[in-house]
Amino acid sequence: MGGTAAGPVPDASHDFALWEKRVDALLVIASSEGHFTVDGLRRVLEDMGEEAFETMSYYERWISSVNQNLIEAGVYTTAELATKMTEVAARGPTYGEAASD
């Protein structure tokens, strides 16, 4: 990443969506509770490989890394995640329908 060739720096900006802010908040809270460190976040981001930086958005990479770190820390299991993912998907296709609160 650092030092590799790349095109112009993009000047577009966007307002953060609620789900993106929530990912950010989950990271801050989970790391302040001692479940992982910023180094752990970065390790998983780097393990994703270069392709992930082309195919996933910033907060998509982050939630993927936060999830991986929380599983490794034993906060929940992969089985619990799978059950919850299925449950969320079954609620409906929009954010409003899938939100339980």
Partner: peptide, 30 residues
């Protein structure tokens, strides 16, 4: 933001709810 939820957005919801259920955080704290 009203397109169908992506896999990663579903993961955000799942992770957030698991953290609340496990007592790591609360909706109010988020």
């Amino acid at each position: 933001n009203d397109h169908p939820l992506t896999y990663w957005q579903q993961m955000e919801i799942a992770v957030r709810e698991l953290l609340i259920e496990k007592g790591v955080t609360t909706a109010a704290e988020i």
